[in-house]
């Protein structure tokens, strides 16, 4: 399994999680969803989202399709793939491990 840097894989985790929860979404909706779901704490920088989406697409974790939105706008929708779900499970596990470890240190240190 590839292990990109922590920041990048955290962004991957957030995006993959969002797509697995909410079904196919376009980039704009992904940004809005992460911001809302995090209680306004996390604002994904839009300039890093698209490179990340395109990278994940080339990894085969998401695929994409142009569609017309409800408001009649052409949008590119991203959908999580089976490989993406695997990656999500892996990322999530490693995130939880990290956050447990950090929590322990904070309690004990």
């Amino acid at each position: 399994m590839k292990s990109p840097n922590r920041l990048q894989s955290t962004l991957d985790l957030l995006v993959l999680r969002t797509l697995s929860r909410r079904g196919p979404l376009h980039g704009y909706a992904i940004v809005n969803h992460i911001q809302a779901a995090s209680g306004d704490e996390l604002r994904v920088e839009e300039g890093s989202l698209y490179p990340a989406l395109h990278r994940m697409e080339s990894e085969g974790w998401v695929d994409s399709e142009w569609k017309l939105s409800a408001t009649n706008r052409r949008v590119k929708l991203y959908r999580i793939t089976a490989a993406g779900r695997k990656q999500l499970a892996h990322e999530q596990e490693s995130w939880e491990r990290l956050s447990r470890a950090v929590g322990r240190v904070l309690r004990l240190a």
């Binding site: 704009y28 698209y50 395109h54 706008r73 949008v75 590119k76």
Partner: peptide, 14 residues
Amino acid sequence: RDLDDELRSHIEMR
């Protein structure tokens, strides 16, 4: 072209 369209669509929605 694809990325251009995508970014444009994002900027329009925002």
